[in-house]
């Protein structure tokens, strides 16, 4: 088991190299570069060329790649070409809102999605089941930004019960923090919750057909106990897996929701950097995002092998 874990950890290194090369090429091959963006509307081509030289963008691609990867080896992600601040500083300033948004969303989605899913599975085929599933499918079918704008116009502008935008650090008070998080969390969480509800229902339906559940019922255990103690516990592996895999969905959503609610997080930072061709920032942020993702995947993979010995070679 131990060697398997070590092997999987080492296997993460080539993945990160793939990501690094891929992102570097993707952004550098894209037409338009930071010099174009930095120069004024009426700058002449010669002036832009000069600027490009001073940014080190005139060097051949492989030299730039070597410089960049050499710096990464020493933990230096480079400096933003546009705002001339270290990429690590920029990320440090932006990571807090994203992490908290992910946490609140995850909490919201799991605490609502799992009970709903169990409920639907328990009442399988009834009106309850259909209602919950339609609700879950709906949550999956509405574009996040549309939902967000609808919420803002009703709850923030018309009824003024929640703020329309912005992020307040948890250090400035838990109440204020949570208050600002309500709309973004519900908006982002709706699709994630729908995913969890669906998966929970599907797995619990499976488990409920197992013999030991019938035995448990036959023993006269109360249905709630059977449901949550036996059925849910035995369904937890696929559900946890989906929570891990759904992380990708979460990051996608974060990019959109941060724009709608003006949350100064990583998603916001990345999209701006891509559009401005701020190479070091794009490379750094995607590398970090991917690193987190690889870590999550590693844990999921390891949990597979723990629970299904057949996969362990």
């Amino acid at each position: 088991m131990f060697t398997y874990i070590v092997r999987r950890c080492f296997a993460a290194i080539p993945v990160m190299i793939v990501v690094g090369v891929f992102v570097f090429l993707l952004i550098h091959l894209t037409p338009g570069d930071p010099a174009d963006i930095l120069a004024d509307e009426d700058a002449t081509p010669a002036e832009i060329e000069q600027l490009r030289e001073s940014l080190g963008l005139d060097k051949p691609l492989h030299t730039q790649f070597l410089i960049w990867s050499g710096n990464i080896a020493t933990g230096d992600l480079g400096t933003s070409l546009l705002v001339s601040k270290p990429v690590t500083t920029l990320m440090a300033q932006r990571i807090e809102p994203t992490i908290f948004l992910a946490i609140t969303t995850l909490t919201f989605a799991v605490f609502l999605g799992v009970p709903l899913g169990v409920m639907a599975a328990w009442k399988q085929g009834t009106w309850w089941d259909h209602a919950i599933m339609i609700f879950a499918v709906l949550g999956f079918s509405v574009p996040g930004f549309w939902l967000g704008f609808m919420f803002v116009s009703k709850f923030a502008v018309d009824w003024t019960i929640v703020p329309a935008q912005g992020f307040v650090s948890i250090r400035e008070g838990f109440g204020t923090f949570l208050h600002h998080m309500i709309l973004p969390t519900i908006t982002l969480g709706s699709s994630y919750m729908a995913l969890i509800t669906r998966i929970t229902r599907a797995t619990v339906v499976e488990v409920l057909k197992e013999d030991y559940i019938r035995t448990a019922y036959a023993k006269g255990l109360p249905p709630m106990k059977v449901l949550f103690r036996h059925a849910l516990q035995n369904s937890s592996i696929p559900i946890v897996t989906v929570i891990g895999i759904g992380f990708a969905l979460l990051i996608n959503g974060v990019v959109v929701i941060e724009t709608v609610f003006n949350i100064p997080g990583m998603g916001n930072l990345t999209i701006e950097a891509v559009l401005d061709r701020d190479y070091p920032v794009v490379q750094g942020v995607i590398l970090v995002f991917s690193g987190i993702y690889v870590l999550v995947n590693l844990v999921v993979d390891l949990s597979y092998s723990i629970f299904d010995p057949r996969v362990r070679h």
Binding site: T176, L178, K225
Partner: peptide, 29 residues
Amino acid sequence: MSKRSLVFSLALAMGFSVLVASGSALAQR
């Protein structure tokens, strides 16, 4: 405490703290 009541009381606690927060938060922003 069963899981169900745990979920329920957590949700209740969250809802309550949001309500309490709202008053002060509205003024702060």
